[in-house]
Simulated assay, not measured.
Amino acid sequence: MSVTVRALLREDLRDFGGYKSARSEALAGEIWLNANESAWTNPRDVGGQLRRYPSPQPEALRARLAQVYAVAPAQLLIGRGSDEAIDLLVRAFCVPGQGRIVIAPPVFGMYAVYARLHGAEVIEVPLRDGAEGLCADLPGLGDAAVEKGATLVFLCTPGNPSGELLALPAVAALAQRLRGRAIVVVDEAYIEYADAPSATTLLEEHDNLAVLRTLSKAHALAGARVGCVIASAPMIDALRRCQAPYPVPQPVADAAQAALEPQALALTRSRMDAVREARARLQDGLRGLAGVRRVYPSAGNFLLVRFADAGAAFAALLAAGVVVRDMRAMPQLGDALRISVGTAAECRRVLAALGASLADGAP
């Protein structure tokens, strides 16, 4: 057991073995009668895959993900998007009703949701709004974790909705400071859009790092719900014991593996280039519109935009058939919308709708 897992895993889970499903053991046979499955295939199950329970961790997909992310398979746990990984981390490393996590709002809401469902306290160190954008205060996050005894610190890079890309040396410094005290969770849901190195490159030297990845965004598999957490092998083992037995159906695993084949990855990389180009054009177009107060820099596939009248801008886009994310209920963002970077035609439609509305002064 690593220093981090030994120090931070809930004491009542240290000897917990989790649920051992019928697929947990490596058994071979021609007639499978160990899982109480139906003896007949459902008429709608054309491929005949759905009658059987899937593997708790699809090994072929796990091996391929490990190869793509340049880690060992033992360092990776597949789950339902990266959301499940957040839930597992809170379950494993926060004592119910007593645990604490640290976040930097405005940020992805599920960190706080899972913490509160678990009875853990959420400690907030807000993003700082300055010349460089909405930026996380990593030293401040570290101070809060130490002072409050938090066991998890969540970082989002590129930030959602801030778009901020964190510098890996700063992440490494935070992990070093919190070693034995807290796990630094680096959510990289949008990292492909940034064309930047992953925090997985820091894992060898920091056993209190956990990196979240997903196929929902860059790989266009949001409906499949496939993601993973990457960390030290002992941490992965602890999280696996907290996981439900069959997180990924076999057809979903097959689709995910196909999305990771070399030809598919090459297409994804070319699409990332296209998104970065479209993001720059959309950013320039928005900055040229009257009524746009600020367009934040972004390393993701979205832009955070402040408006003189965000309600009117939101209504104008809806009237033009364009749905964007209303951020006005989030802290610090009472005048902001988040706009995903779509196709070139979709971006032109956004600019046209806002240009007409803001020029007229009416939705």
Rank of each mutant, 00 (worst) to 15 (best):
R269S: 13
A218M: 08
L221R: 11
A356C: 05
R325P: 05
S232H: 05
A26F: 11
G29Y: 04
L89T: 08
A222K: 12
E84T: 11
Y190R: 03
V146C: 10
C242V: 05
E346N: 11
D83R: 12
P169Q: 13
R62H: 10
A144P: 00
N36V: 04
V171H: 08
R23M: 15
G223N: 13
V229G: 01
M1F: 11
S55A: 15
M1S: 14
L76T: 11
T343M: 03
S198Q: 03
R271T: 06
M272F: 03
E84D: 08
V171Q: 12
S24Q: 14
D45H: 01
V5Y: 01
P96N: 07
S216H: 13
A70T: 15
R62V: 12
V350C: 12
A104T: 10
R181D: 06
A104E: 02
G130W: 01
N301Y: 02
V211Y: 04
E205R: 14
Y69L: 09
V305H: 08
R349P: 00
A274I: 05
V113R: 09
E30C: 10
I191W: 01
K217W: 00
R91F: 00
R14H: 10
A173P: 08
A222H: 10
A308K: 05
F302R: 01
R62T: 15
V71C: 09
Q283D: 12
V248I: 15
P54C: 14
G29V: 07
A60T: 14
A199N: 07
I101A: 06
R179C: 09
P249Q: 10
A345P: 00
P197D: 11
S21C: 10
V186F: 06
L212M: 12
I123N: 13
K20E: 14
K148I: 01
G81D: 10
A7H: 12
R328I: 10
H118G: 06
L127M: 08
L260G: 07
L239R: 05
A345W: 04
S38Y: 02
I236D: 11
T157S: 15
L152Y: 04
A231P: 06
T151G: 09
V322I: 14
A194W: 01
L134M: 12
R6N: 15
A319W: 08
C94H: 03
R213C: 07
A345S: 12
S24T: 13
G142Q: 05
